[in-house]
Every structure is written in structure tokens, then in C-alpha cells.
């Protein structure tokens, strides 16, 4: 239990809360990495998932590729990329994008593909153009499901961005790696606790966002 009190001391030490290597700066770095990764992953995965869900073409390939990507170990990619591409931000961010794409892709695809054929048919029969069917019917109906995938990806990215510190980058993982090097267990505990808080907070925000984009008409049907 002295470990926990050590952690508490570390967390409440004012010197850890100001300056360039301090907790707020590290948290900001952590959020920046995760933010960049999420933006890139969303830009790649959401349109692709919508396209495949809308046309129904290539769905087998998308599910297959997403499944294969999921099997790739992020730490392996991160170390391999750093070794091959050198140090810098690109290797870890690329590895994290590969981590984030599958859940967003499959969720977006599933959201669009699950739109009832009757609703789609009715929209067409009322005289909606294919673009209108996509933007006015399929997107609003798929959004809650796609947001579920985005939430999930964000959780994984924030958790895994911790290991970016392993290749000499910043973020909250810095304290974990540095603490490990000098056997400062309190600092390690503090580090992982902060990551957990960040993950929980982000998930709460995204959950609220997910609720906001879900039409009340869909909430009543949800079991």
C-alpha cells in the first residue's frame, strides 16, 4: 500500500504539474497523438465503410481485411516501422492508424448495411436520388453504429499510444517507461492511472456525442 501512497505523492507533487515535461504537457501530447490518429483513421475508414455498405460490393473483402488487420500486433508494427523508417512521429502514428481502422470500418459498414431494405426501397420509391438515399437515410441510420466503432477505436488508440514513449516519443507513457528504467514504481502507477482517466473521459464525451447523433426514433427501437 505504500506504493499507492507513493503514487499519490507523485500525482499531487506540484513540480509534476508545471513545465515542459509535466503532466499537462504529456497529457496534451497524448491527446494530440490520439487525435491525429483518429482523424486519419476516420477519413480513411468512414467513407470506405459507407461506400461498401451502400453498394454492397466488396463487403467480403472489407470484412476480411479488417479481420486480418486486427490480428496484427500494434507493438510489433510500431517497432518494425521505427526500425525501418527511423525515429519520428510517422512510424507510431501509422501503427496506431492500422489499429484504429478495423473497428471504424466494420462498424460503419455494418451500420449502412443494416439499414432495412424496405426503408431503402421506400426512399427510392418516394423519388430520392441515390445520393439522397445515402445522405438522408443511410447516413443518419448508420451514424449511431459507426459512432460505436469510433468510440471503440478511440479507447484502443488512447490505451496503446502509451507505448509511443517506448520509441522515445512523449505522451503519458513517458512516465511509465522512465519509471521502469529507474524502478520508480509510483511513477509507473501514476502514468497508467492518468491514461485510464483520459480513456474514460474521452469515452464519456464520445458516448454523449453518440447519443446526440442518434435520432430519438431509433432509440425507441433499440432493445
Amino acid at each position: 500500500m505504500n506504493l499507492l501512497s507513493g503514487m499519490w505523492q507523485w500525482l499531487t507533487d506540484p513540480t509534476n504539474w508545471s513545465g515542459s515535461g509535466a503532466i499537462p504537457a504529456r497529457a496534451l501530447e497524448h491527446m494530440a497523438y490520439s487525435g491525429i490518429v483518429m482523424v486519419v483513421a476516420i477519413v480513411v475508414a468512414v467513407p470506405l465503410g459507407m461506400l461498401v455498405g451502400h453498394t454492397g460490393r466488396g463487403s467480403g473483402a472489407v470484412i476480411g481485411v479488417a479481420g486480418a488487420l486486427r490480428a496484427l500486433p500494434t507493438l510489433g508494427l510500431l517497432t518494425l516501422f521505427s526500425l525501418l523508417m527511423g525515429l519520428g512521429l510517422v512510424p507510431p502514428l501509422l501503427a496506431l492508424v492500422i489499429l484504429a481502422v478495423p473497428p471504424i470500418l466494420t462498424a460503419t459498414y455494418a451500420g449502412v448495411a443494416e439499414v432495412s431494405p424496405a426503408v431503402r426501397d421506400a426512399a427510392k420509391a418516394q423519388g430520392m436520388t441515390p445520393t439522397q438515399v445515402l445522405t438522408r437515410v443511410e447516413v443518419p441510420l448508420a451514424l449511431p453504429v459507426a459512432m460505436g466503432g469510433i468510440r471503440n477505436a478511440a479507447l484502443q488508440v488512447i490505451a496503446t499510444a502509451t507505448v509511443a514513449a517506448y520509441i522515445n516519443l512523449g505522451g503519458l507513457g513517458r512516465y511509465l517507461i522512465d519509471g521502469l528504467a529507474v524502478r520508480d514504481y509510483s511513477r509507473m502507477l501514476g502514468s497508467v492511472l492518468l491514461v485510464a482517466v483520459l480513456a474514460l473521459a474521452t469515452d464519456a464525451v464520445l458516448a454523449a456525442l453518440q447519443r446526440a447523433v442518434t435520432s430519438p426514433g431509433l432509440r425507441t427501437t433499440a432493445h
Binding site: A122, Q126, G127, Q132, G217
Partner: peptide
Amino acid sequence: PEAALRRSMGYVMQASGLMPHRT
């Protein structure tokens, strides 16, 4: 054009086909 033609006729189907996200 298809869309214009469909807008000019009413269409009622077996499953009401209502948009679940709209009032």
C-alpha cells in the same frame, strides 16, 4: 428522370417503409 417520375406518383408498400429516424 427516375427521381422526378417517382416524386410525381404516390407509392405505398407492404412494410410501411417509414424512415425510423424521422417523426
